[in-house]
Amino acid sequence: MDAAALPQVETLTFHSIEKKYLRVSIITSAIFWTLALAGGLSISAFGDIDNRPLAYAIFGGGVLLLALANLTFIRASFKKKKYALRERDIIYTKGLWWSVRTSIPFNRIQHAELKQGPFERMYGLHSLKVFTAGGQSSDLVIPGLKEETAQSIKDFILGKTSQDGSESTD
């Protein structure tokens, strides 16, 4: 096979997702860690424990430490979340330790939809979900897109899907 003549994935320009999405991620994780901290502190306060100060240090400090690590991780991995549209497929990369690059041809897309969680709504962001027939493990979610970007990508994909798929029946 002559691979050199094919369109190359790696020479493509990738778009970052909206900066504001980082805040959404941080808020979501802050809520989780606040709950975890509340849990840890109430164990220390009401649990059957001899050395209470130590318990506070271990449970409270431990949770805070994990939260801090998680926060750093979220900030660092945010930069890895990028997407690209080509003539015939969509590509999304993510992952700091485990990097994953998913590519889905338009003519294999079954369906695409926009989703918005409560915190995404606060910042006017949308997630684009792309479904294939390959089951959940091959579905794609691109978070943190502005309304007009998300809508236009979705329309672009669906337009392409029907166009590329027009020769085959489903």
Partner: peptide, 9 residues
């Protein structure tokens, strides 16, 4: 093929 993933640890 419906989707391709490249994974790297």
């Amino acid at each position: 093929v419906q989707a391709v993933k490249i994974k790297q640890s």
